[in-house]
C-alpha cells in the first residue's frame, strides 16, 4: 500500500470533516428551524450529491473551477493557479460531495432537541451562542459524532469526484481508492487487495465506533 496515498486520504478526510462540521452546523440549525418552502429547497439541494453520479458532480466542479468559467477565472487570479488538480480543489469537491452526510444527521439531532428547553434558555438570558454551546450542542452531541464519522468514512471511500477533479497525481491527489484503481489497471492484484482490505477495515471500524457510541448514549439516557 502506498503510504503517501494513505496519508493523503486521511488528511483529506480529516480536513473535509472539519470543514463540513463548520459549514453544516449553521446550515442544519437553519434547516431545523425553518418551515417554509425554502427549507425543502435547501434540503433537496443538500441531498443532491446522494443521487447524482459522482462523475456529474466532478464534471461540474472541474468545469466550474477551471480557468474558462467566471468563478474559475477569479480563483486563478486569487490563488495564482486553478483549483482543479490540486489538494485544495479535492477538498472543495469532497466537502460538496459529503455535504448530505454531515447535514442530515445534524438536522435530525437539532430537531430532536425540545424547543421548549431552547426557548427557556433564551428567556433566562442566554445569548444565541451560549444557547448553542450550553444546550443545543450537548443535547445533540451524538449527531455530531454521527456526522463526523459518516463524513470521514464517506470521504475515504470517494472515487468519482476525486478522479475527475484530482486527476490522480501521486502525493497530491491520488487517494487510496484511486490507487486501487491504478493497481488493478497494472494487474497488481496482491497490492490492490491489500489496499482494498485496509479500506474495508477502516470503514468497518468507523461504523463500529459509531454504533457503539449510539448504544452507549441510549443506555445513559435510560439510566
Amino acid at each position: 500500500m502506498e503510504t503517501s496515498a494513505l496519508v493523503l486520504t486521511l488528511r483529506l478526510a480529516g480536513l473535509t470533516t472539519l470543514c463540513l462540521l463548520l459549514i453544516a452546523t449553521p446550515l442544519a440549525l437553519w434547516i431545523a428551524s425553518e418551515n417554509s418552502i425554502l427549507r425543502k429547497i435547501a434540503q433537496a439541494t443538500v441531498a443532491l450529491p446522494l443521487v447524482l453520479p459522482p462523475t456529474v458532480l466532478g464534471y461540474y466542479l472541474l468545469v466550474g473551477m477551471g480557468p474558462a468559467s467566471g468563478l474559475g477565472h477569479i480563483l486563478v487570479k486569487a490563488l495564482g493557479h486553478p483549483l482543479a488538480f490540486t489538494f485544495q480543489g479535492l477538498l472543495v469537491g469532497s466537502v460538496i460531495y459529503s455535504l448530505p452526510f454531515a447535514v442530515q444527521p445534524l438536522v435530525v439531532g437539532f430537531e430532536g432537541v425540545d424547543p421548549g428547553v431552547v426557548e427557556t434558555a433564551r428567556v433566562l438570558g442566554a445569548s444565541p451562542w451560549r444557547v448553542f454551546q450550553r444546550v443545543i450542542f450537548p443535547l445533540a452531541r451524538m449527531s455530531f459524532v454521527t456526522a463526523a464519522v459518516l463524513t470521514f468514512a464517506h470521504t475515504v471511500g470517494e472515487f468519482g469526484v476525486v478522479l475527475m477533479i484530482g486527476g490522480d497525481i501521486p502525493g497530491v491527489t491520488r487517494t487510496l481508492s484511486i490507487s486501487i484503481f491504478d493497481l488493478v489497471q497494472e494487474m497488481n492484484y496482491p497490492a490492490a487487495s491489500r489496499t482494498a482490505l485496509a479500506l474495508v477495515a477502516m470503514s468497518f471500524f468507523a461504523l463500529l465506533l459509531l454504533y457503539a457510541r449510539a448504544a452507549n448514549a441510549r443506555r445513559s439516557q435510560l439510566g
Binding site: 428547553v117 428567556v123 450537548p138 443535547l139
Partner: peptide, 13 residues
C-alpha cells in the same frame, strides 16, 4: 425575565 415554563423544561444533560 426569569421564567419557569409549563412542563419545567429542565436541561436533561
Amino acid at each position: 425575565i426569569a421564567y419557569a415554563p409549563q412542563g419545567a423544561a429542565v436541561f436533561t444533560h
